[in-house]
Design a protein around this nucleic acid. Structure first.
Lengths: 193, 193
DNA sequence: GTCTATAGATGGATAGAC
DNA sequence: GTCTATCCATCTATAGAC
């Protein structure tokens, strides 16, 4: 992910701070100090605070996209849409619950990126959405699903996962796996024929 | 809501700014200037920026709670749980879509409140949650609904509404009414027996 | 109740030594 | 590559005149 130890530590600390306090409420001094470095050291690895946020957003979105793609690649293509969508939902929900700070920054702090950086992140988000939309569409065509609008249903499905990051922490009395299993079932009922 | 014209204008401007940029990225100078006042005038009506946020959170949460209660009071108690829950869901979703800036601040900016103010807001949120949980519970008891866990299902239902504020603006190609109607249907399918 | 002026503190980023 | 020192802008909040 990030090979240099200092650069990596800075990202890890910034991730925790951004998730806990928000981008604007986090100071570069705090990130550097909590990383065991001087306030100036951050600028050796990242040109600005915004660049640090961008790297985090890039790491998070790439990881989420790759996990979805990998999960789908490991499902027998002859499986029905319900199975394939369940795999996607579980993976998507699980990712948000397993990496709550990273997911939180990815879902809530993008407004603080520059226009150029936002565009790059939006491209990855578009890819992810296309993947989910494709599976819902397939299920509608096969008759397994019944929804009035595929994109609208996809929005509702992803909302189930995304809203997790507003409140979930690993010590919330339910494991990421349980959360993913139970929520995926509800999501499937939502689109079922 | 707020009777004094200047106090009201300050709240309105602050609401827009907090929703667009976040609490910490919004400056009191900006709020005052955009309200047609000097930077100092804000402190005549609000003791701090945090107090301004608290008043907004109070207005929003009280309004949401009252709308839910009113809507339920106008439903024939002999109606089935599906109808009653549909009314709640539509109202809750509609409120988030109709007041996207207010809802956004209420859902995403509470972390910037003082511990004391958070506690007051959490009380109202608790009341709202109790209302929704109650209707889901009734539907489970009557056999109209079938969910493994009432609180978990309630979390999923409210997530559908809350995640709207992350992306929705009135010019997004769908009206609040349409959004509420279509999303409430999906929510009902999620808990249906 | 609104203003101008400013205190007092903090934060992003840079300069230059080692 | 990391440091100390610091510039300079910005921000919350207050003082005191009108």
């Amino acid at each position: 992910m990030v090979d240099n130890p200092s650069a990596r530590k800075l990202v890890e600390v910034a991730l925790d701070e951004f998730a806990a306090r928000g981008f604007h409420a986090t100071t570069t001094r705090d990130v550097s100090t909590k990383s065991g470095l001087s306030p100036a050291a951050m600028y050796v690895y990242y040109s600005s605070k915004e660049e640090l946020l961008f790297q985090i957003a890039l790491i998070g979105h790439s990881a989420a996209r790759d996990r979805l793609d990998d999960a789908l690649a490991n499902v027998d293509p002859s499986e029905g849409s319900a199975t394939r969508l369940e795999v996607i939902l579980r993976e998507f929900i699980f990712w948000h619950a397993e990496h709550p700070t990273l997911a939180r920054v990815c879902e809530y702090e993008l407004q603080h990126l520059s226009a150029e950086h936002v565009a790059q992140i939006e491209q990855i988000r578009h890819d992810i959405q296309t993947t989910v939309v494709g599976e819902v569409q397939r299920g509608v065509e096969s008759g397994e699903f019944d929804v009035p609008d595929v994109r609208f249903a996809t929005m509702a499905l992803t909302a189930l996962a995304i809203d997790i990051v507003r409140w979930y922490t690993p010590g919330a009395g339910i494991t990421p796996t349980e959360l993913a299993d139970n929520l995926a079932v509800l999501g499937l009922k939502m689109v079922a024929a």
